[in-house]
Design a protein around this nucleic acid. Structure first.
Length: 418
RNA sequence: GUGGGUGUAGCUCAGCUGGUUAGAGCACCGGGUUGUGAUCCCGGGUGUCGCGGGUUCAAGUCCCGUCACUCACCCCA
């Protein structure tokens, strides 16, 4: 074998690929039902968009970006996440000039240069949703509920919703100083000390026991929220409670992108190996201004399709696998094959999924193929039938077979299938 | 970027202390039936034992290197 998929990427093959489509669909459907409209943005963007939007200090920007120069000398980057590009598009096309909020959903691949492991790939797929331009805690609750509903619709039961508030520009700087003062006295390594300088909140998320043990008395953001932030957070929780969404307070929840503020959340699941998040998001009221747009508030999430599938597999939740086709043609000989070719085309035109045996297989082989296609009916056609102006329609479940006039076969099958 | 584990058929794997034609189950293909699948019977191995070198009379097996995959740290979807 001379080529393999690049490190950290993988092929999504049938029959599992149908589950992939189904998950992507199920995760986006609740958003569509809530009036979110589909948007598609480029898979690569100006490198500076991510540097400024996601934040220079994040791991994503500082070491995980797929950056390249095109032939015009521009520095471009394969998107490591979806929100920055969507907000760029909202600004560029002044979508905010219309009715607000702008509600959008999207789905597609993202890229991060990381060491692959279970649940973590260099190419991964997310479904995302964003509500932009209206600062209303009800939108926070709505967006969270949409993700919740998506997971539930898939039959997933073992996920948890972690929730917290990261404060805003009014209260976070003071809290940040407080936390830094606390961290200064700890016995931690140089790397962690450096992180405490750049982004002290991230230290709270450290999973190493040696660090964890020292974080017990650390000050928490939720205890230092300013008035408006506290009210906002209370409102979000009240609305979630109203509609029966259950969450856990996660005061140390920190996410990897700098733009988050106020409401922040993560959906976690234990079936992903060392990874835990199957989806996450939050409010990013400063993002638009940071990338040169007007001061637009926004909240959104991104849900990992690959990770959701892993979680489903871990739980043993299956998806109904649909039959490949409804009708399968089994020809005996070249003349019959040509006749069936037209018949299957006619069936498809009438909205019936149909396939047939190609390549002059024997009758046995063709019947076998019909069986494996999952079709409800096989059309068996030979010279004898053609002479009689009929075809044999075989019900593959019962085994019953009857001769039907060729002329009206498509119509007859349509009738039987409905 | 740092560690650990694993590489034998399409898949899951067996192959003991080196021993001569490399195996099983599943899958796949063909036949039993030139007009009938899912069952049954018969037949078929589809392979660069990851790759390169070394030790040996002899290497899938031992040694070195290398590559790939994988798991974990870190980080997150």
């Amino acid at each position: 074998m001379s080529f393999t998929a690049p490190k950290g990427t993988y092929d999504i093959l049938p029959p599992e690929s149908s589950a992939f489509l189904a998950v992507r669909d199920a995760l986006s459907r609740p958003a569509a039902l809530a009036g979110y409209e589909y948007i598609e943005t480029p898979i690569f963007e100006d490198t500076a968009l991510f540097a400024r939007g996601v934040g220079e200090s994040t791991d994503v920007v500082s070491k995980e970006m797929y950056t390249f120069q095109d032939k015009g000398g521009r520095s471009l980057t394969l998107r490591p996440e979806g929100t920055a590009g969507v907000i760029r598009a909202v600004i560029e096309h002044k979508l905010y000039a219309g009715q607000l909020p702008v509600k959008l959903w999207y789905a597609g691949p993202n890229f991060r240069y990381e060491r692959p492991q279970a649940g973590r790939y260099r190419h991964f797929t997310q479904v995302g949703a964003e509500a932009v331009g209206v600062d209303d805690p009800m939108l926070d609750a709505e967006i969270i509920a949409l993700a919740w509903e998506g997971y539930r619709a898939l039959g997933l039961g073992g996920f948890r919703l972690l929730l917290t508030s990261l404060g805003d520009d009014t209260c976070r700087p003071a809290y940040r100083a407080l936390l830094q003062a606390f961290l200064r006295d700890l016995d931690i390594d140089d790397d962690t000390r450096r992180r405490a300088d750049i982004n002290p909140l991230r230290v709270l998320d450290d999973k190493r026991p040696a660090v964890l043990a020292q974080l017990d008395g650390a000050p928490l953001m939720v205890e230092h929220l300013c008035g408006p932030c506290a009210v906002h957070y209370d409102d979000v929780r009240a609305r979630l409670a109203d509609i029966g969404v259950q969450w856990e307070e996660a005061p140390r929840l920190v996410r990897g992108l700098d733009y988050y503020m106020r409401t922040t959340f993560e959906f976690v699941h234990s079936g992903l190996g060392a990874q835990s998040a199957i989806g996450g998001g939050g409010r990013y009221d400063g993002l638009s201004a940071a990338i040169g747009g007007p001061a637009l508030t926004g909240i959104g999430w991104a849900l990992g399709v690959d990770r959701t599938l892993l979680a489903m597999r871990a739980e043993g939740v299956g998806l109904p696998t649909a039959a490949r086709v409804q009708v399968y043609g089994v020809p005996l000989g070249a003349a019959a094959a040509e006749r069936l070719f037209g018949l299957t085309a006619g069936l498809r035109a009438a909205g019936v999924s149909a396939d047939m045996a190609y390549g002059a297989r024997g009758l046995k082989g063709a019947m076998k193929a019909a069986d494996r296609s999952g079709a409800a009916y096989a059309i068996v056609l030979g010279d004898r039938d053609i002479r009689a102006g009929t075809a044999q329609l075989k019900d593959l479940r019962s085994g019953d077979q009857l001769a039907l006039p060729l002329d009206s076969l498509v119509a007859t099958i349509l009738e039987k299938l409905t």
